[in-house]
Design a protein around this nucleic acid. Structure first.
Lengths: 251, 251
DNA sequence: CTTGACGTTGCACGAAATTGCACGATAACT
DNA sequence: AGTTATCGTGCAATTTCGTGCAACGTCAAG
């Protein structure tokens, strides 16, 4: 591969995932880490990205989120999205909730996946529009602006026609006793309705959601099949769940 | 093989693959790498491609502007959006079509506007989610990926409950005789349905749409109330419409 | 038919670019 | 503090580049 093109690829990956891990990329492109590091250094010199220990982050200060990371995080939401995306098989009907993690999932679907994705999140729908083969069903309704998802009777009514294999749900709190919760009453109701339409529900929860609880309870942990979250945070905290609870997958 | 022909072949391969590898091409054409390099140098001198170590890349570095094209809207579309946004009054129910111009419209709504916006475009919905006061109704359905709008029976059914004052419609062709047209059959059907639910329809048409016609006709010019387009282009061309046709507003 | 100008091609050789590895330094993790 | 992973630099091997030059074919003038 031509080096110029490789650099473009690096920038594209950076744009897509929000970060670059030197080691991962070297394996992906079948090049030594030295070469990747050289590229990253040069791109950093051009101001096209920001070099950090372990890889690189976007240069644009707009993305420099809280506290300005100085290390590559454990991939965070992108990693959760990647792992979740791999759980979907050809031919399945999958419901996708709203939220940034769900957008990451949509972004990391296999390019040749032939499945039907149902979502009430316009953001997810926009992302999925770029996928070459999945069928996308958009659930309409009144837009709940805070979370940018459709809710209300119209949305619930549309769901009546849906029967899904899997529902990837976003929540704002996962707690051993309080269960799954979110910050809005109507949103909680909508999520319960979505759960009811799917054979299994898997929760996507980035680190900060673990062992937190919000005002409105969606369901208990016993009612879901699995939780996908990040390394390091949840290990001990969710352990007490034992065999009765959902399976926990670490990204 | 003639050298001129070979150069055309090189450009064709470049067009197809997005890159040229000197070594590969030399084997493919059974010529020395020197010759290929010479050709590449000459083509680069003519500005037809970009020379890089190992081969060549397209001259216009595949303007795959990250973030996806929508970021850069032409001034024209933004102006059209601004003008259209001013036509909406408090208390009205307005249907917004898909397309970049509609997104611009959504972006330029008065911050204190109290209206209900109905849309079948997830992109528009995402944009409107940032508006503090408008009520947003998202029309769901099967996602037509090319235009990123919901279509199909579910979408049509949802429309049954809607009664709007105004419909801002995007089209791909506005032609004095052919009328309003678009490139997809199902999309044309959806637009007709949306027209039927609104008291008045106003077409948003950036410069390149004027006096163009696409495969599927939506309606005649007599059926709409107005067209909003840019200065300079449409002035003379649409003049023959006279008093019978829609009013034309220039942005 | 011969000859020489011209363009094209392949080869040779030194220059430049790219890559992977080694090694000491640095930073993160425990 | 000690351990591990990552970084940066120097260096050598390989690939690619550019230029000069000779070989070959074409074509038109002699």
């Amino acid at each position: 591969m031509l080096t110029t093109q490789r650099k473009q690829h690096i920038l594209a990956v950076l744009q897509r995932d929000g970060q670059i891990v030197a080691k991962t990329l070297s394996q992906e492109l079948d090049l030594s880490e030295d070469t990747i590091r050289r590229d990253l250094r040069e791109l950093a010199a051009e101001g096209l990205l920001q070099r950090v220990h372990g890889g690189a982050l976007p240069a644009s200060p707009a993305v420099v989120d809280f506290a300005g990371r100085s290390t590559i995080a454990s991939d965070g939401k992108a990693a959760i999205g990647r792992v979740a995306a791999e759980m979907i098989n050809d031919g399945q009907v999958v419901i996708l909730d709203g939220g940034t993690t769900a957008v990451q999932l949509a972004r990391h679907l296999r390019a040749d996946l032939k499945a039907t994705i149902v979502t009430h999140s316009p953001s997810v729908a926009v992302e999925l529009a770029q996928h070459p083969s999945v069928e996308v069903i958009l659930i309409g309704g009144r837009l709940f602006k805070h979370s940018v998802v459709a809710v209300g009777v119209a949305a619930l009514e549309s769901l009546g026609h849906i029967r899904a294999d899997l529902f990837f749900m976003g929540v704002t709190g996962v707690h051993a006793e309080a269960g799954l919760s979110t910050g809005d009453h109507e949103e909680a109701y909508m999520k319960r309705a979505l759960m009811a339409r799917a054979a299994e529900t898997v929760v996507l929860a980035s680190a900060e959601k673990i062992n937190a609880a919000s005002a409105y309870v969606i369901a208990s942990l016993a009612e879901i099949s699995g939780i996908i979250t990040e390394h390091g945070v949840a290990d001990a905290l969710l352990e007490p769940l034992g065999a009765a609870g959902p399976s926990i997958t670490l990204a």
